[in-house]
Design a protein around this nucleic acid. Sequence first.
DNA 1: CTGTTAGCGCCTTCAA
DNA 2: TTGAAGGCGCTAACAG
Lengths: 340, 340
Amino acid sequence: MSAKQPTIKEIAKRLNISISTVSRALHDHSSIGLRTKTRVKELAKELKYEPNQAAIFFQQRKTFTIGVILPFLSELFFSSAISGIEDVAVKSQYTVLLGQSRDDANREKHIIETMKKHRVDGIIISISKHTTNYEHFNRLRQSGIPVVFFDCIPNMTDIHYVACNMVSGTVQATSFLLKNGHRVIGLINGPEKLYASKQRQEGYQIAMSKHRLKYDPSLIVNSDLTKEGSRKAVKELLEHKRKVTAIVTFNDYVALDAMQYADAQQVAINKDVCFVSYSNLPMVEYLKYSPMASVEQNPYLQGQKATEMLLELLQKKEEDQTDNSSYKIIIDSHLVEYKQ
Amino acid sequence: MSAKQPTIKEIAKRLNISISTVSRALHDHSSIGLRTKTRVKELAKELKYEPNQAAIFFQQRKTFTIGVILPFLSELFFSSAISGIEDVAVKSQYTVLLGQSRDDANREKHIIETMKKHRVDGIIISISKHTTNYEHFNRLRQSGIPVVFFDCIPNMTDIHYVACNMVSGTVQATSFLLKNGHRVIGLINGPEKLYASKQRQEGYQIAMSKHRLKYDPSLIVNSDLTKEGSRKAVKELLEHKRKVTAIVTFNDYVALDAMQYADAQQVAINKDVCFVSYSNLPMVEYLKYSPMASVEQNPYLQGQKATEMLLELLQKKEEDQTDNSSYKIIIDSHLVEYKQ
DNA sequence: CTGTTAGCGCCTTCAA
DNA sequence: TTGAAGGCGCTAACAG
């Protein structure tokens, strides 16, 4: 069955011309006689010739492949992001090599090794929540593989990244609640170490001080982002000595668990306690309870931007422009209010 | 910055030995002196030598890459499937090259071309709903690239595939409703051409005849799987001259839209009309309305099985076992009943 | 306009 | 135990 693929060598032999002539004819090189060109192209079609990219990649030291490493594909944020990545990549003839870290630092490291072996041209990554050692990223830099971080970004200097400014979104979210008369507002944040958590806290504090309210640290609790963690967190807020009337949650998934728990405690969702969240999940319209508003993080756009940035870096690299500046794109998050 | 990667040639030169000796030393070839071996290995480590897989791939005509083509990553079914695929692939040192067809036949074709160019070792694909021309699959076969279909499978002979037996699940789903006393049961099916639709219809008919009820074709309506299509479909059933008391929907997304429409028409969900569906979405617990039961299709398992099958085919191919049999795995679907 | 040659990095006979 | 040489498929100088 699988007859082995024809090569330009084969074509050359059959046509009694040299290999390079065939190569040039196939590439519409200017200095090739029309006659030979047509003959070559016809035979190529007849033989169903297809250039062996593996050989070309090898020869050109370029694979037209970009590695994409994400924690979980099952989260809509990431599947949207990868759509954006893929769209831009495909348009530029690149392909996407995929890896799921599952928020496991070792797995992440292993994936990076594999991608390095596969000689991907560049990498786009949202790092795992448990990655604390950044050595493998440094090694990537040493091997000259450009990396664009997005979403979850390591605390390193001189890196390229696309991020979403969660501060502005959080200010909007908190202000939204303040404008609606709430004064005691809880924040269910993610793990403390996360930059994303710090940003949310910062936004929260900014909004508070803008409204000349003093910041009460006990109103900020952390969830480990598991169902149980979120339930514990909301419990703490509901039992807070001050009467919490509104809660900002780290993301929609946390919000769902928190609201579910609150509901079970006979708390009237968005009446006794109002919820505002992040992610803007499309499932909202079908949900039993949805937050009153959610901060859109534009994952698709982030994916696009990250890819564009990476492609630009690759371009620069090819042109050998030693450019040591680090690229940053900050996308603004914004609040989306839902109709009740 | 990016100093170019060292090669075995480089190592050989520095050590004043031949390239092949280095190659053998690195591979722990039996006939290499311990001294040279250690020297080579040490220098390799020092230089941070890493074999250039692109070269090896080229040389071995194998990329350790499998192409995975799916309609939408954003559907949980597919993101689960790809998790299964990736898990198995990673364990066998393979990498996943990703492509989203977005249910667009042209895009699908284009992706396949790209993957062929990239010389993927094999392909796993759930074909787009709008793919009617199967020529590109035949061409894949001609180029000797093994393909394993899963989920959405083309109507071709002699293909390898992993599928979910939707007939059994549908029989269970319909029987579940019949046992609960329903007699006039509607089916919102997908596009007629789809094999998945045919299977559902078959299961529906089997269940009916098992219960000695006669089959009424007007109770089966089709949705194009858009929100509008599903709303139209459920409208037709709700206005049916016979009083429809239960509806089986093509999948959970269809169910959501159908239930939403029904609710707006003052129909009491799962009281006036009961819903049963497919997919078993994990979001169920947070939904306003959920079907009473859903047919689990085990996407993760399907992904695993498909990958195992593909790896086996690759193995066979390597060992040059000309085996023309076509592999099929049918996974049983089963009904999951939800607590109300 | 076309052919010749060298080489990308690695593995693998064949010789020594 | 080691070295030399060839070749995977293709591109790109360098010659004609």
